[in-house]
Design a protein around this nucleic acid. Sequence first.
DNA 1: TTTT
DNA 2: TTTT
Lengths: 143, 143, 143, 143
Amino acid sequence: MSGINKVILVGHLGKDPEVRHLEGGVTVASFPLATSETFNKDGRRVEQTEWHNIVLWRGLAEVASKYLQKGKLVYIEGKLRTRSFEDKERVKKYVTEVVAENFTMLGRKSDFEPTPANGILPPNNKIEDDFSTSIDESGDLPF
Amino acid sequence: MSGINKVILVGHLGKDPEVRHLEGGVTVASFPLATSETFNKDGRRVEQTEWHNIVLWRGLAEVASKYLQKGKLVYIEGKLRTRSFEDKERVKKYVTEVVAENFTMLGRKSDFEPTPANGILPPNNKIEDDFSTSIDESGDLPF
Amino acid sequence: MSGINKVILVGHLGKDPEVRHLEGGVTVASFPLATSETFNKDGRRVEQTEWHNIVLWRGLAEVASKYLQKGKLVYIEGKLRTRSFEDKERVKKYVTEVVAENFTMLGRKSDFEPTPANGILPPNNKIEDDFSTSIDESGDLPF
Amino acid sequence: MSGINKVILVGHLGKDPEVRHLEGGVTVASFPLATSETFNKDGRRVEQTEWHNIVLWRGLAEVASKYLQKGKLVYIEGKLRTRSFEDKERVKKYVTEVVAENFTMLGRKSDFEPTPANGILPPNNKIEDDFSTSIDESGDLPF
DNA sequence: TTTT
DNA sequence: TTTT
């Protein structure tokens, strides 16, 4: 039977998205996202930051690379996925990532002006992973 | 600024909860939870299962140990936390867990009869981590 | 700036889905969903049930009409929408509905055998509103 | 069996919170919250705003009245509740509200300086409804 | 490595 | 009635 695997995050990007193009033309983007929690401990104010590995595929990766930058505040919805890989010493390791399914840019509008390299404004702050859009060929944004 | 770090899961327990009592009387429970997703790949039906490490503290751990068992269907709400530890070869490793904040038992009512060893019915299927209840001293359930 | 409007429900259908075909061939389905909460009040166990108006469009409506029936347990994700209408005395009224964006059937697998009138099994328990699928013409299911 | 009834919103307050003190000393606050969605329709950019009735109880109401104001951006988690009431012509009407269970202030820190009438800063942006705190007597904030 |  |  199917289950539910849902993650909802609001936080700040720790770095600019890192974009890779896999063989076959598939685009993947990833970045670290910080979600901070502040609480009182013995009268002192303590901040605890949790870091999340965000991964985006296809059209969602393209859009993220255009509009998200280090420091920006973003709402992300996705699912958890733990995968194994071999590090450079060939030791098997595990990492848990949040595979984004859609995101919404929060914060001031001016925070989301496209970088000089690209000049197209998204008509919608909410961007969905449509699992099919190919931006590479048309050059259009996936919405 | 504070952010949001929320996980919502519906899945089946892979094992009975494992309960530990830390020094100081704090109770911790943990179990693996499977969330399955079924999809079509080239006409064939493929099932993909994701495993999550669920951790529960204090009163929530106590209740989980009484009412949750291997195979049961449960709704879990919590937050992501990645922590490091040293394995037996003293290699630093990372693991991402879902720290439960509340859970709700799903499925047939008969699925949630308490085990013979304990005979107290929870008045509510939704159990919250109140971050304070001490069950150890009173022997009462935290609700 | 865009915001977030998200509803997550797990509950039982109060009635079979009611399906309507609008002019233009668009399909809409709707049903009441009950989410129950049980809690202790002065030592007595009290159950409180909340009823939600669920609305599904297009392909999602088609699938719901085939696989969801009165009494079934379902996970629904959607958004809130309040709309006004005139009752039969032409008094303006408001109703808040949950417009479903996807749903997942929970409970026993046997609970989701298709009704005799239709014999197609969905390859995936999670069904998404793709906002475009036209089932009317092809006769195919939207996945 | 228990279900899940959860709402997640990110939006702007349409008005300052309106606070009432019920007989028995219980505090209730309420305000309208706007969640906007922007999308493309036939090449034109269309914005659709949904208005939600937010209701907060007890300590959560007290905190909301201190820190939330018209125009502020806020994350709200709660549950749906539809209740009936009689309007001034004694006609029975229904209204669906979002009963907040916790909220987190988003946006710039300077946006959340307390109003002149009160001068206490919350040590945590996330405020929970603890269903018990009485601020009236102690004068302290509920955390 | 973010933000306040 | 918010915001961009």
